[in-house]
Design a protein around this nucleic acid. Sequence first.
DNA 1: GGCCAGGCTGAAG
DNA 2: CTTCAGCCTGGC
Length: 270
Amino acid sequence: MIMKIEDDFDIQKTANCGQCFRAKEVQDGFYRFTTDRHVLYIKPLGDSNFDISCDSDEWFKVWFNYFDLETNYREIRTKIASVNDYFSEAAEFGKGIRILRQDPFETLISFIISQRRSIPSIAAAVNRLSESFGDEVDTEFETVNCFPTLKQFKGVSLLDLSSFGLGYRAEYIHDAVDKIYQGIVDFDNLHAYSDDSMIEELKKIRGVGDKVANCVALFAFHRISRVPIDVWISRVIEEDFHGRNLFLKVIEYAGIAQQYVFYYKKFATQ
DNA sequence: GGCCAGGCTGAAG
DNA sequence: CTTCAGCCTGGC
């Protein structure tokens, strides 16, 4: 069906800006997104129209929220752009990016894997895990593997995990699954935590530090004032902001500003 | 072959 | 509190 979406919404940028690892361009301009057991094929048709593969019921139950369509990004982008020239250019370059509300467990495991690796290499590892341990869902075009659930990960030994080219991260994933399963990390209730206590709770997991914890807070729980500081954002603060953390100037939506800036620094200025 | 990548840990200053 | 080597593996 056709859906009209008037606000900033660029499928390609949203899929490729580094916040998610399983979104993919499939064919004929369609992008495939998956979350939980849902699969969506979506294609921009121009003039704010999008061809989507699901019905209106699923769209409003699942995807409207996933793409954060109730938030007015145009308004936020304009405010971010008004800070200085750098933010203005980054916001223009990243215009259309939306901060997804991804599945928390998938986000956690994906960003544990992400440390010291490139995006394609992260995506490959996440896909291998999905193909080996995740459920299969049939769509009208293909069979898609879901990201494995906590239960499915629980059934995988550390030894088996180690055979996935995850290196030292295999142990971190094993620890994450273990601590969530045992309730040492209160994962199911994280949505009720304040930003700071959420980060603290996540950091109980081995291999989860400030950066990964902030990615989970931002990309799964939509805590949009959180700014994950990776090497690219550090470089911006050093090289372009002269050591000042200018994200503080737009703290209410600093996470969105961060994503524009990350995308700009990594893909436009290299 | 050598070096480095979208971090974290643990040890030492 | 801050710094820094070492870590698995794949890609160049």
